[in-house]
Amino acid sequence: MSTETLSSDVLPATGPRRVPRRSPEPIPFGRVLLVELQKMFDTRAGFWLMASIVIASVIATVVTVLLGDRDALSFDSFAAAVGSPMSILLPVAGVLAVTSEWSQRTALTTFTLVPSRPRVIGAKVIDVLAIGVVSMVLALGIGALGNVVTSLVTGNDAIWDISATSFAKIILANELGMLLGLALGLLFRSSPAAVVGYFVVNFVLPGISGALASSQQWWADHAGWFDLNQTRFLLFDSNLTGEQWTQLGVTTLIWIVVPFLVGLRLVLKTEIK
């Protein structure tokens, strides 16, 4: 190191030339909401997840028209055909909305730009729930289209057999799935772990529960108090009794509310690296 270089570096700093600035306006919550929504779609994974949901819905409608017993087809058959791939895949979007921050380590940027973690998580929850409603309305729209097309093909009158209440229940069932995804995301904070966890809860546990019920009378009688899927799926196509609503509340508490709160606490406390 020559003295020359040293002395030029050691020259006293020119001092602050910046004029004192006003403190910027706080970030409005609506902006956090929009940016978090954008973040769910603007990655390759996010884009294809959403695209695959739409593609699956369209395929389901086409397949129903082509292969279904056309004379027996009604609005309900289409809405079910469209809604089920959505209700299975959409919670994965809920999972990824949270876990990608950790798996992709974007949490580092997210929480330095918005230091309040409850605001960010709150925005994600609202966005995910909004997607849950919009997607079901979309499913209803695609189903209606299929229904109209079928009636044109068969010449029968289209059967519109979904009431507002049953649609509301379908939305509720879908939102519960979304919240389950979010809860698992908060709990695991890792995309692979949470996605596997979601599929285990949704597809493996019902099998185990079913097997248990066939061999054990007590479980067969009481599974509704513990098995979220059993109660949640009732929302799609039946009228729930008072007891079943209570069972839905209990299973939601066990499988969604508790994991959500535990996960939320972990996210608020954890060190972000």
Partner: peptide
Amino acid sequence: FAELPNPGREVGVLLDASAQHAGR
């Protein structure tokens, strides 16, 4: 830091350049 109303307008932070979403 948590009290900054819009932290990005007052502090530029770069803690790990690799911590970006690979698919964006």
